[in-house]
Design a protein around this nucleic acid. Structure first.
Length: 547
RNA sequence: GGCGAGUUGGUGAAGUGGCUUAACACACUGCCCUUUCACGGCAGCAUUCACGGAUUCGAAUUCCGUACUCGUCACCA
């Protein structure tokens, strides 16, 4: 085709595209940023699902931009109309908000480099495609699904590389007349790149996480525009990250094999390329095998699941931080008061293999997280949670605010705080017995945890001597006396020395009281619980128990 | 099948030629502390880094081969 023919082909294909590349470029000027500032983007497809893998991706974009005083923006990659899901973009927004990973620019925040929704950028992509056609670097391809299928099967049979390249690219050299004929018949077509790659030549990806990776050049005449006029991911990615001036593309390592395509596109378009950081996916163990987390198969990894289960978003981020750089954990242990943003995250220290998503570890991190919070904070945060997920308990919390806070405050201050809470859900489970509404339900149910023999005599005596005004020491001395008078050892040590001399030891008495008062085997410090409940309530509960 | 990546304990992993008889953390086990449980403290938990070979005075760390696992080869991203 001659220059003139290519020009008329471009006009034929894109009569409505009047802008030039230069005009578009001028609307996306270089960003003015300080040296070393990173521009990152979170670019999900709104398919109606966000899982921890997506979250990790967004978190990485966020921290690296933030720590370098750069820009973190959000772009919605919705070029696949068939997978479009109603409300999916607001799910993305909400998910990021619940984890406080907020892009300062993009689909919801706006900004100077938009639009940030790919389906709204159709003309931009087509402007570049039109230009490529004029230069003879792209061409329309009218092959049908059946033809493609046939070629593919043949290639598989002959163990050749799969795809449209070389002599398989039959529409590469269609004449203008032939194309016109197709167009007149209204035949569907896509636009393919005219690949200039050589399978025997190699390109090197200088990956920020994995180091240098050598790959063969792209020889495939990749589709850059689908029959509906929208670009494919590969093309949209290159155009957008160029125009929006991304400096580091952080994405899952499943994209590594397509790097040569992206490089090729950049070269053909004359773009200066950004850097890449390909991270290993989060994996899960199943039947002894490890595999990548899947949206469809693993609902327990969905972001909404975490919210519903009451797992604190800060805990999840702390967990993600330890996955991203394992040395984070040690650092955080030494700097418990600092934010994860103070930690110098590095691409080089990221794991290169798949990382197992260990829920056990997440749990532990959350426990520690809660153990460092003030009672008041736990109260307020869980109030929000219960307002949404458990209105009954929300009512109880509101009604008994002071009591709950005093309870949560037990053994919280000091160097060795309790670690009995890992989720907002635990706040209810651990404090239920403090509230009459839940305590006096059904006696069987209240005391279902208790299996050992009950000494009603000692409980009756205890009920008589309990005084809510006693100090901790006075309280303890009273129990010791009670123990001695009733043939219990006043300390565990004495009991252990001569167990046959005693009915039990002081701990057994405490346990009896604990059971009667709370129905539980494990609680925070008993003295404090009794004090919060008060003499009257303590008496009533013991009577309830022994009656 | 082609291409690419990965392979250190129950788990996440540190480690880039001698400081490693393999850090740290989670889990597990035991002991101690303690008014029970928890918390906390101490100790134990891979003589060994997928396997085979090579280089070297010396290798988890370099090289070659094998195996296995994962990813990818769409008008999906």
């Amino acid at each position: 085709m001659t220059d003139i023919e290519r020009n008329s082909l471009a006009e034929l294909l894109f009569p409505n595209i009047t802008a030039t590349r230069e005009e578009i470029e001028s609307k996306y000027p270089e960003r003015t940023l300080t040296e070393g500032a990173k521009v990152t983007r979170f670019a999900p497809s709104p398919t109606g699902f966000m899982h921890v893998g997506n979250l990790e991706s967004a978190f990485l974009d966020y921290i690296f931009a933030k720590q370098s005083n750069g820009v973190f923006y959000l772009r919605l990659e919705d070029t696949d109309q068939e997978r479009y899901v109603e409300g999916a973009s607001s799910l993305v927004k909400e998910s990021l908000e619940t984890f406080s990973i907020i892009p300062t620019e993009g689909a919801f925040a706006g900004g100077a480099y938009g639009p940030y929704i790919q389906s709204e950028r159709k003309e931009i992509y087509q402007t570049y495609i039109k230009d490529l056609i004029k230069q003879g670097l792209a061409y329309p391809c009218f092959m049908t699904k059946e033809e493609l299928q046939e070629i593919r099967e043949g290639q598989e049979l002959r163990k050749e590389a799969i795809g449209i390249y070389g002599h398989y690219a039959v529409d590469r050299d269609l004449s203008l007349e032939e194309i016109k004929a197709h167009l007149e018949k209204n035949d569907d077509y896509v636009i393919r790149i005219r690949s200039n790659g050589d399978l025997n030549k190699q390109v090197v990806l200088h990956d920020l996480i994995k180091g240098d990776i050598t790959l063969p050049e792209n020889i495939i005449d990749e589709v850059i525009m689908k029959k509906d006029g929208l670009p494919t991911y590969h093309f949209a990615h290159v155009i957008d990250d160029h125009l929006m001036h991304t400096t580091v593309v952080i994405r899952g390592d499943e994209w590594i094999p397509s790097y040569p395509k992206h490089l090729q596109f950049c070269q053909m378009l004359g773009f200066k390329m950004w850097k890449y950081a390909h991270y290993a996916p989060l994996t899960k163990k199943e039947n002894g095998n490890t595999r990548k987390l899947s949206k469809r198969k693993d609902p327990e990894f969905s972001v909404s699941y975490y919210k519903e289960a009451g797992i604190p978003s800060e805990g999840v981020k702390l967990f993600l931080s330890t996955i991203i750089n394992t040395n984070f954990e040690e650092w955080y242990l030494q700097n418990p008061d600092k934010s994860y943003l103070d930690f110098p995250f590095s691409f080089k220290k990221m794991p290169t293999g798949g990382t197992l998503f260990d829920t056990e570890k997440l749990n532990n991190i959350c426990r520690t997280y809660f153990s460092r919070l003030k009672a008041q904070t736990i109260y307020e945060d869980s109030l929000k949670y219960y307002e949404e997920y458990d209105p009954d308990f929300f009512q109880v919390m509101t009604k008994n605010k002071d009591r709950l806070i005093s309870f949560l405050d037990i053994e919280r201050s000091g160097k060795r705080p309790r670690k009995d809470i890992a989720t907002y859900n635990d706040v209810k489970l651990e404090s239920l017995y403090m509230f009459d509404e839940y305590f006096y339900k059904d006696k069987e149910d209240t005391y279902k945890e208790i299996s050992r023999n009950v000494d009603t005599d000692i409980l009756t005596k205890y009920m008589a001597i309990y005084d809510e005004n006693d100090t901790n020491d006075e309280w303890y001395t009273k129990i010791q006396n009670l123990a001695i008078e009733n043939n219990y050892a006043p300390s565990t040590k004495e009991y252990k020395a001569n167990p046959e001399n005693y009915k039990g030891h002081i701990g057994d008495i405490c346990e009896q009281v604990r059971h009667a008062i709370t129905g539980k085997k494990e609680t925070p410090n008993l003295y404090n619980i009794l004090k919060i409940l008060g003499k009257e309530e303590v008496t009533r509960r013991i009577q309830f128990f022994i009656s």
